[in-house]
Amino acid sequence: MKRILMLGLIFLGMASFSNLQAKELPNPTGRVILTVTGAISNTNTAGGAAVFDRQMLVNLGMTSLKTGTPWSEGVDLYEGPLLRSLINAVGANTDTLSITALNDYGALVPVKDSFDYDVILAIDMNGEAMRIRDKGPIFVLYPFDTDPNLSNEVIYNRSVWQIKAISVE
Rank of each mutant, 00 (worst) to 15 (best):
Y156S: 05
G127R: 01
F115T: 11
I123F: 00
Q55K: 06
L141G: 02
A89M: 14
Q55F: 05
R3F: 11
I155M: 04
I123E: 00
L9Y: 03
P26V: 05
T63D: 01
N149G: 13
I120E: 00
V154G: 06
I33F: 00
Q21H: 15
I4D: 11
M1P: 14
D76H: 07
T29F: 02
T37E: 10
N27G: 15
V75N: 10
Q162F: 01
S85D: 14
Y117R: 02
I155N: 04
G106E: 09
V160W: 07
L7H: 12
V36S: 07
G106W: 06
L86R: 03
L150H: 01
D147A: 08
R3T: 13
I163S: 03
I138A: 02
M6G: 05
V36C: 04
L34Q: 07
L25T: 12
G38R: 04
R3K: 09
R131M: 05
L5V: 14
I10N: 13
A46V: 13
I123C: 00
W161H: 03
T35D: 01
L5Q: 10
G38A: 09
S72L: 10
Y117G: 03
M125N: 04
Y117E: 00
P81M: 02
R54C: 04
N149W: 08
A49T: 08
D95R: 15
R84F: 08
G48T: 07
N152S: 11
G91R: 13
W161L: 03
L60E: 01
D118C: 02
N19P: 02
N88K: 15
I4M: 10
D76G: 08
V32A: 05
T94S: 15
Y142D: 01
L34I: 08
E128K: 12
I123Y: 00
A92R: 13
A49L: 04
I132Y: 07
N44E: 14
Y117M: 03
Y142H: 09
V160A: 08
L60S: 01
I163L: 08
N157M: 06
M1K: 15
D53T: 12
I99R: 03
A129C: 09
A46K: 12
N59Q: 11
D104N: 15
G38C: 06
A22H: 10
S151K: 12
S72Y: 09
